[in-house]
Design a protein around this nucleic acid. Structure first.
Lengths: 114, 114
DNA sequence: AGTTGACTTAGAGTGAACTCTAAGTAATAC
DNA sequence: GTATTACTTAGAGTTCACTCTAAGTCAACT
């Protein structure tokens, strides 16, 4: 569902990013709130937030309400990195569009002459 | 200027992504067209194209005009990955905005009660 | 003449984020 | 009762993209 491998889940657990519950057999149980958290983590990873920072956020969360400002700052910083990424992608996309157009132009010319 | 380390330049050279000229002393000379190429490579890297694919593109380029279609395909594929990346970033940004707003809300409430 | 600085090389090392292995346990299926 | 399946663990291995090291050469300054 979340497309996170079991191995990756173990890794996140080792890094103290997630701590699933255990059933009577000692097997991991991911509740709805675990899944929600993982979904959030996945989004952060997909947008290039390093594990180390996700770990930091998790730790702040555990420390309680008095860390809200720090968490807000962390999220605002990440928001800025997202903005930068979007800018970079758009610039490159524009460059690619130019190249793609010129390739198409070239190819149609070749076709005409053949 | 390009913010690519000499070490990275050597690495790209080893991977046959760039082949600078040499002066009488055997030292590398990057001409304007080399710099242009590196700028292009940098944009591709910044938008997550793997070295392996950049290598592929470079090779096709060397092979000549008859590889235009392949190069076009490669660039169009990358364009699609860029679109996907932008989508992911925007979705996450929206999610962050929600969180950020709710953190701010929370913090202002805390301030009022103190 | 000697030292400094900028380059050269091959190859080893690094950090991030998984990814896999091997050995073990425990419930279910036949 | 044995086989299969699904989990468990600690820890080793992998991949990517650099990044650095060490030893050497060469021109230029003092």
């Amino acid at each position: 569902m979340l497309e996170i491998s079991t191995h990756a889940l173990r890794y996140y657990e080792k890094e103290e990013i997630i701590k699933p519950e255990r059933d009577a057999q000692g097997n991991r149980r991911y509740t709805d709130s675990h899944l929600k958290w993982l979904e959030f983590v996945k989004k952060l990873r997909e947008t290039q937030m390093p594990i180390e920072q996700i770990k930091k956020y998790t730790q702040l969360f555990k420390e309680g309400a008095h860390t809200s400002i720090d968490r807000l700052n962390l999220l605002e910083n990440h928001r800025r990195t997202i903005e930068i990424q979007i800018e970079t992608l758009k610039t490159t996309e524009a460059m690619l569009d130019k190249k793609i157009t010129s390739y198409k132009q070239h190819l149609s010319t070749v076709n005409l002459s053949s």
